[in-house]
C-alpha cells in the first residue's frame, strides 16, 4: 500500500527519530510528519479535511501522557465521519497482547507493532500480519 502522508505520534522524541528513519526506508515516497504532542496532531489533522481524501498512515503510540493512543482515536472518530482512508498501526512498548484485546473495536487499526519497530516488522504489519 502507498501513502502520500505518514503521521507519527509519540511523546518520546528519540522514538520519533527512530520511527522516521524506519518509515522512510519502508515508504520512501511518503511525506513523514511527526508529533510529540497528540493535541497538536489532532488540531492539525482536523484543520485539513482533504487529508483523508487519500490513504493516510498513522503510527500511533498507545502509552502517552494526557491522552492515550486510544483516547486519540476515539476523538478522531467523534470529529470525523469517514475514516475509511485512515490506516492506523498502534505502537506499544509492552503488554502487546492485552492492548490488542482491548482495541478490536477500532476498524481503522490495521496492525500492531512492538517497539523498537524495524524495517521488517513494519513491512509485515503493512501486509496485514501482526
Amino acid at each position: 500500500m502507498q501513502f502520500k502522508k505518514v503521521y507519527l505520534v509519540d511523546d518520546n522524541p528519540t522514538t520519533l527519530f527512530l520511527h522516521q528513519d524506519v518509515v522512510s526506508d519502508v515508504l520512501p515516497f511518503s511525506e513523514i510528519i511527526s508529533y510529540e504532542d497528540s493535541e497538536f496532531f489532532i488540531k492539525d489533522f482536523l484543520q485539513i479535511p482533504e487529508t483523508l481524501k487519500e490513504p493516510v498512515l498513522l503510527l500511533l503510540d498507545i502509552n502517552m501522557p494526557i491522552k492515550t493512543g486510544y483516547d486519540l482515536l476515539e476523538e478522531l472518530e467523534e470529529e470525523i465521519d469517514d475514516l475509511d482512508n485512515l490506516n492506523v498501526i498502534m505502537v506499544t512498548s509492552s503488554n502487546l497482547r492485552r492492548d490488542i484485546e482491548r482495541s478490536s473495536r477500532f476498524t481503522c487499526i490495521i496492525g500492531y507493532l512492538e517497539k523498537p519497530i524495524t524495517v521488517n516488522n513494519l513491512k509485515t504489519a503493512l501486509l496485514g500480519g501482526y
Binding site: N12, T14, T15, L18, V22, N63, S93, K115, T118
Partner: peptide, 10 residues
C-alpha cells in the same frame, strides 16, 4: 522497556 527499545533501535 521504552528506553531499552530506543537503545536497541538506535
Amino acid at each position: 522497556k521504552n528506553h531499552t527499545s530506543n537503545l536497541q533501535g538506535l
